[in-house]
Amino acid sequence: MNHAIIIHYTLYLALALCMTFWVARTLHKNGRVFLVECFHGDTHLADSVNHLLVVGFYLVNIGFICLFLRAAGEVDGARGVFEMLSGKMGVVMLVLGAMHFMNLLLLARMRRRARLAAMPPPVPPVLRVSA
């Protein structure tokens, strides 16, 4: 096995895992506010769901990164390493982006549903009687 492929694999794993970690941290930190609102201020439940979402995110992304590790052709020299790495990282980032937007969509939908459930009557009554 040549050194180029070892360098490629090491760089790919390091970069892809760092990127996953950064996106997951961003999601964890900024998604909490949405979840607290979705669960009507229940911070315990929001933290729990937030943690579970991040675990799912890690599992799916690290799984994809591992499956996508194998280099198809021969890697020769520094140019080969960079070209292969760039192609792989591009796909990994697109997948991370898609996962991130899917999570955002999910959070926005949950927030919308929670807001609708707590929505007061949209029209004023014509009269009030003693209940």
Binding site: M119, P121, P122, V123, P125, V126, L127, R128, V129, A131
Partner: peptide, 20 residues
């Protein structure tokens, strides 16, 4: 439409309350 809290709606408002 009469709510158990005492509010009354009629006509378009009543239909909107049914959807609500």
């Amino acid at each position: 439409v009469l709510a158990d809290s005492g509010e009354v709606w009629q006509g378009a408002g009543a239909w909107i309350m049914c959807l609500w």
